[in-house]
Design a protein around this nucleic acid. Sequence first.
DNA 1: CGCGCGCTTGAGCCCATTCAATCACTGTGG
DNA 2: CCACAGTGATTGAATGGGCTCAAGCGCGCG
Lengths: 260, 260
Amino acid sequence: MQSLTGLEGCDFNETERAAENTCGLVHSCGFHARNCICSELRAAFNADLPKGVNRFALASGQEIEPETLPNSPVIGVLTGSVGIVAHLSDGRRTITGLFFPGDYINLASLNRQLNGAITALAPSAVQVMEQPVFENLLRLSSLTRDHFMDQMNSLLFQLLDHSNDLAKKTPIERIAAFLFELKNRTLPRKSTQFNTVAIPFGRRDIADYLGLQPETVSRGFTTLTTEGVINLPEADLVTIQDVHRLRQIANGGRPRKRGV
Amino acid sequence: MQSLTGLEGCDFNETERAAENTCGLVHSCGFHARNCICSELRAAFNADLPKGVNRFALASGQEIEPETLPNSPVIGVLTGSVGIVAHLSDGRRTITGLFFPGDYINLASLNRQLNGAITALAPSAVQVMEQPVFENLLRLSSLTRDHFMDQMNSLLFQLLDHSNDLAKKTPIERIAAFLFELKNRTLPRKSTQFNTVAIPFGRRDIADYLGLQPETVSRGFTTLTTEGVINLPEADLVTIQDVHRLRQIANGGRPRKRGV
DNA sequence: CGCGCGCTTGAGCCCATTCAATCACTGTGG
DNA sequence: CCACAGTGATTGAATGGGCTCAAGCGCGCG
């Protein structure tokens, strides 16, 4: 586990980050998308960070090889963005899954293993729960059970939608859909406006997530900008000018060949 | 629910189909991929088909609109192949998810809804469990809980792999990967040989699942055939001649541009 | 048989990729 | 303070591959 830098306590700024959490607790459990289960964790184990639960700060680009983790744990994302990065034999890179604060990755699977490395796409913090602890928590708290089922199902539907994007959408449509995905999945920062989406990582990662080349992503953004659908004051900040049109595009409003 | 044809009992040939199930029971629960939970269902409710659990036969192409089902049920696939079919505004068609006997689709999600229609890609049979019944079953049987968690996680990893296929693989690579997916996910029929894969639906559906055009799929199959990697004695039957090479291809061994 | 349907094969054309250059920005050291 | 390299985003030009349109073929069915 040399790639993991253990934290003495938590050296990422918790109070600053707490604002990003729905639950608002300083000691976030990482599972705070809808229902916060911090209190459940505390009630079950009488501690905010019981034995078998550890937190790590990950630098941008830092990887966790699933095989190196003990007890096939559950990994919760606290802050930042985490992706599952797979490589083909000739080096092509794909981000198959995207995880934001509140999402979790369950590495416990009897019959199937995860392809790819868990990679921080931006400075991130994760919480690693060893499988026995996790199972205990599930057994003790029905609220947690429900939350997890829901969260898992939600992620599943998300992936189905993403498959839809990758399968038949044109580059611009994919980008439009991606913006909505970000809007839905990431919590809006207080400082930003309504229709503003912060893009949490670079063009290359966007491209690898959308099945495109970085250049194509760049071109897509400029096209959407010149058409007045979006604005990008900075490379990692998008303001949506015409939500209706953008939604139209995301839903197939920009086919390859204009219908004859 | 006019699109559903209710069954008086079960008019699909159970004894014939039972051979396809791991559990081998005549009354298959539809959740028999690894562990059979038929006995759990029976123990919990004292019946093979408790109230709130119904079976339906679906003709090829027949759809179930998720919205028309009561109590956001859990749907288990008993026989055949079921897909989630989504359409873009201009008619482009995508099969975002693929479900085989033993898989299930959980429509209970508080925060997110399923995009697309549940569609039988071949003559199929499904089991619809209303949510309350399902929850009861989960509550009563820890074995079922474990099985479901595992099944869900497995499906999730499957989808991640599929995203990898769609994002960066060339058509031929996708087809190769698809063959392995079929090989892994569908139970081999007794009558067939070792390295034989039965393709359970047509080119169009394959194309919509792999994000290609039917013509491209066809071309891909012929290319693989002429290269001696596979044989296709019939349009829906593939025998793998060179497993090693096919795996190589599925893993990125056929880039767009041969390395200069 | 004729018809329909689905799979296969062929020809031409967009358009995303590829290769390459430029630009914007950051941090480092002289 | 500027020069410099390094990184990432953007823009440009040319290519090739998958899509589109279309025809041919094989098979089951009325």
